[in-house]
């Protein structure tokens, strides 16, 4: 089943085409990678899907329903959560409160607060942060701030999670832990759509990969297919 699909999605900034006529889809239960050089339009695509930017050309559907034109909070409540390339945490709040806010507001009916608090603690433990519950999020290390973001996104009970460069700036051990985390998230029954620069990670964890270059989709397929795709190799090794 297609949980997310986009048809003819385009975005211009001024005269510059950040995305032109991109078709894509994500099936339920998959881990799909989105890769491409800097400026390829990856984050723009995420921003359009999550409504951080408005989609004026093309249609994006989530669970078969058209979501273009909706507001970010509506999309979140439909079950589509995201993290950010540059972390956007609630810095002065404790890590636990960050996650708590996700479960308090991210679910349509709203969660009774006691239940939400318990869920938040469980999620902090899930991302391996139960030791720093009360630490203000801004005092955490970068890798832990990213974990808070993941836990916070999970707290909104998503069916699809967009992870924007979860592994950028992490050391090899942390990358391995992050890869494990992504698999664990999928095992909870959540579909994952990831933007990643760390090739080893994306090849190891994704079922399918979409490659963007200059705002256009140049390839799509399994990690093996992508690794052997001439167009992709040219883009990455330089024309």
């Amino acid at each position: 089943m297609r949980i997310l699909e986009g048809e003819g999605v385009s975005k211009h900034f001024g005269g510059l085409a950040a995305l032109s006529n991109v078709d894509f889809h994500v099936d339920a239960g998959e881990i799909v990678g989105l890769i491409g050089p800097n400026g390829a339009g990856k984050t723009t695509l995420f921003n359009l899907v999550s409504a951080a930017l408005t989609t004026k050309q093309g249609v994006i559907k989530f669970k078969g329903r058209k979501i273009t034109g909706l507001k970010p909070h509506q999309i979140c409540r439909m079950g589509l959560a995201r993290t950010f390339q540059s972390v956007k945490i609630f810095g002065n709040m404790p890590a636990l409160t960050n996650v708590y806010i996700g479960s308090l507001f991210g679910i349509p009916a709203g969660t009774p607060s006691a239940y939400a608090a318990k869920g938040a603690e469980e999620l902090l433990e899930f991302v391996g942060l139960s030791a720093s519950k009360v630490t203000p999020a801004k005092d955490l290390t970068l890798v832990n701030q990213k974990r808070v973001e993941v836990a916070r996104a999970l707290a909104t009970k998503p069916e699809l999670l967009l992870l924007d460069e979860l592994m950028a700036g992490l050391n090899p051990t942390e990358v391995a832990q992050a890869m494990e985390l992504v698999t664990k998230i999928r095992d909870r029954g959540i579909t994952v759509f990831v933007i990643e620069h760390v090739m080893k990670a994306i090849m190891g964890v994704c079922d399918r990969i979409i490659v963007l270059h200059h705002g256009e989709k140049i390839a799509e397929g399994t990690p093996q297919e992508i690794a052997n795709n001439r167009a992709v190799v040219e883009v990455y090794l330089g024309e």
């Binding site: 909070h73 979140c76 945490i89």
Partner: peptide, 10 residues
């Protein structure tokens, strides 16, 4: 704290 994140948290 962060308006954009707040919006994406529902």
């Amino acid at each position: 704290e962060n308006e954009e994140a707040a919006a994406h948290m529902g």
